[in-house]
């Protein structure tokens, strides 16, 4: 009896969640449908959900008139470089979580403080620094300001605090070096948070707009975000073209996410962390 009612409840919750998911996802459906609408339909009122005469002309324009192919490649490279940051953040998180050392408190406070610094203020000093380091106009320069975030270090430290200290001590007694302990014991145990961080880093790098725009002297280094904003003309804009650009940005990341999601879920299930 109890099981039946519990099942019923689950079904009810599922239905509610399904309805919620539709609402949440609706802007995406609208965007995708808008991206295949010809220009004449995009201004139609009342708005129609589905295009009458779907067309891929908008996408053709993006790749033809604008260099969206190149922007796509650049975006992928920035994503790849950014993955190095995940490892750096994991290392720092481990350092803060499992060692006691001089200056740990103040340094961790600095990590937290970086989360509170408004981005706008960092723009000019960071640009001057990158310029001084001759990193402007490189994809490294595009990726490096966002490589490490206080948020990420914080998250890693919190989760790694729960890695049993006994396991680390035991490994040390067995003569394992610190690097080995980190790679072989701590990182594998941190798989769930690692998965979360990889996804977060992917999202951040994929959507990066500010640094590609500022650091690049050349549109050879622009990313998709910058490309989409190029479509914003001062006054007039073509909604269909914009929707196509937006679709191009959103759909690949959705696919990556859906593929990766299973791994994240697995990571969660494997974890014994709290």
């Amino acid at each position: 009896m109890r099981i039946v009612s519990s099942r019923r409840l689950t079904a009810a919750i599922g239905a509610a969640l399904g309805a919620g998911a539709l609402v949440t996802a609706f802007p995406f459906l609208w965007m995708i449908s808008g991206s295949v609408k010809p220009r004449s339909e995009s201004a139609a009122y009342p708005p129609r959900l589905l295009p009458e005469a779907p067309t891929f002309e908008n996408f053709a324009q993006l790749f033809g008139r604008l260099d969206f192919g190149r922007y796509l490649v650049n975006t992928l490279v920035v994503v790849l470089i950014s993955m190095a940051g995940v490892v750096l953040m994991a290392m720092a998180g481990y350092g803060f979580a499992k060692f006691r050392f001089r200056g740990r408190g103040p340094m961790f406070f600095l990590v937290l403080a970086t989360m509170m610094v408004p981005v706008q203020v960092t723009m000019i000093p960071t640009y001057l620094l990158l310029n001084g380091m001759r990193l402007t106009n490189t994809l490294v320069g595009v990726a490096i300001p966002g490589l490490v975030s206080g948020f990420g270090v914080f998250l890693f430290r919190q989760f790694m605090s729960a890695v049993p200290t006994e396991m680390i001590e035991a490994a040390r007694l067995d003569g394992a070096g610190e690097a080995r302990i980190f790679w072989r014991i701590v990182l594998p145990l941190s798989r769930p948070i690692l998965a979360v961080q990889i996804v977060l880093t992917f999202i951040g790098a994929w959507n990066s707009f500010l640094w590609p725009l500022i650091v690049a002297d050349d549109d050879r280094l622009y990313t998709l975000s910058v490309g989409v904003s190029l479509l914003n003309r001062q006054i007039a804009t073509s909604p269909s073209l914009q929707m196509a650009g937006a679709t191009l940005m959103v759909v690949p990341i959705l696919i990556v996410f859906i593929v990766f999601q299973r791994h994240i879920v697995q990571g969660f299930t494997l974890s014994g962390l709290r």
């Binding site: 919620g20 998911a21 949440t24 996802a25 802007p27 995406f28 609208w30 965007m31 808008g34 996804v199 999202i203 994929w206 959507n207 707009f209 975000s225 989409v228 904003s229 909604p239 914009q242 929707m243 650009g245 937006a246 940005m249 959103v250 990341i253 959705l254 996410f257 999601q261």
Partner: peptide
Amino acid sequence: YFAPAITAIVAVSLV
């Protein structure tokens, strides 16, 4: 439910 979080504001603001 996760999807909105992973999209760039540049793109979704239009929508």
